[in-house]
Design a protein around this nucleic acid. Structure first.
Lengths: 93, 93
DNA sequence: ATAAACTGGTTTATATTATAAACCAAATTT
DNA sequence: AAATTTGGTTTATAATATAAACCAGTTTAT
């Protein structure tokens, strides 16, 4: 049986990647709401995804307030596709 | 986003359930080979699945040697279907 | 017959991971 | 100007996965 990339096989990280696969970019606040996660947890998981090169994180401002936007990278998209492919074997779908 | 049943969202337990969904019954040795897991890990994860009522484990003998056979229960099959359903949302497939 | 090695596991200790709680700086509201 | 909110990060803790050590019984070789 194929291995399931452990970086993606985590509910929150998978949710984040899944969202980013369908949406040019998304900011921290949006991801937090959509995934119903705590800020701390989200922060940590975004770091991991960024550390692996699966997403890029850009910190900027909107007016005076900070804004963290995330985008999936080609490596991230590839890893996601491979993960889905491996999962099919388990789910047989 | 739907919750991913944490009991199934584990590579080894998912592999076990996935196998048992497709095969009337399977014994410890077969599961160990098929999943390429260590005996200790498999033993622990089978206990968890059995504890949740997702599989039933039957210990018997074949000649003089012990044999542990596993079967999925209706509850296990239902949980698996629900898990697959939730995952579709993440994978959009 | 007995020691050595193998089978089929279980138990327990350890490493990894996920999660929440505590915290921080800046902005906003009262 | 004090209190609250926003947008996070860091750190401590809880949960999980995994492997290592172990055990009872069986088979094989001596």
């Amino acid at each position: 049986m194929k291995e399931l990339n452990p970086l993606l096989h985590s509910q929150l990280r998978l949710a984040v990647i899944s969202i980013l696969m369908n949406v040019e970019e998304a900011d921290f606040v949006y991801l937090k709401e959509k995934t119903e996660s705590t800020a701390g947890n989200l922060s940590v998981q975004l770091d991991k995804l960024a550390g692996a090169g699966y997403i890029e994180v850009e910190k900027g401002f909107v007016g005076k307030k900070t804004r963290t936007v995330c985008r999936i990278t080609p490596a991230g998209a590839k890893a996601f596709e491979e993960y889905v492919d491996a999962l099919r074997q388990y789910l047989n779908i």
